[in-house]
Write a protein that binds this DNA or RNA. Structure first.
Lengths: 106, 106
DNA sequence: TTGATATGACACCATTTGGTGTCATATCGC
DNA sequence: GCGATATGACACCAAATGGTGTCATATCAA
């Protein structure tokens, strides 16, 4: 659980999960495209996601394909986050969300 | 949003949220009890939770009372986590459909 | 085979992080 | 007022983190 929270703490890593959510199974090279950091740094981020069990690896020849595993995220939602969702509090969040202009994900 | 993820990345900070969830409005001194680190370290953790808007402060005389604000957690659930739950549900539905109609090959 | 491609494995670096200890300040109870 | 208490404000430190660059290795394709 701690590894999942730590993996999710970095915006670059969350962006990788987002990109895999849009198109699953991308290679390391594909994930390097469109990001400003080196391949070395991307590899380190993906290893952290892999160790948190958020990403699974499938080798196809010399290509390393990355697949999103959303189950740890769901487990965090089930075991940890929902505890904090309580009637009136949840209603306040909903109200706040309605009042805000619809915005992009960060 | 990033501040919330970063604040949640540390197990000590998550334990403070848990303790405030059990009993809200605890003072700094109370939160220092039962944890092995110094008051200085506890203060730093609480400042991070405060900046992430996960904890609100109310001063009563010389006592600093801490109140849990679960709205950022709920917002993470609503805006970020449920996206991946939908993916998982869809994947499970696909699997179920394939198992029920193995002659189909999508 | 040979060269291009995809990735791993390191060594290295600067900054952030989580921690300590010390002194200062404000408030409470007597 | 005075001592005890509750906290802030720093300076300081070691380790973790996020990044780079370089060389090695395995695989594909002509």
């Amino acid at each position: 659980m701690d590894a999942v929270f730590k993996a999710l703490a970095d915006a670059t890593r969350r962006s990788f999960l987002d990109r895999l959510h849009v198109r699953d199974g991308q290679t390391l090279g594909e994930l390097c495209d469109g990001v400003e950091i080196t391949r070395s740094a991307v590899t380190k981020h993906l290893v952290i996601l892999e160790h948190a069990n958020l990403v699974s690896i499938v080798w196809v020849g010399r290509e390393k394909h990355h697949y999103l595993n959303p189950i740890p995220i769901t487990e965090i939602a089930d075991r940890w986050i929902r505890k904090y969702e309580r009637g009136r509090v949840r209603a306040l969040a909903d109200l706040k969300r309605r009042l805000e202009t619809p915005e992009e994900d960060p």
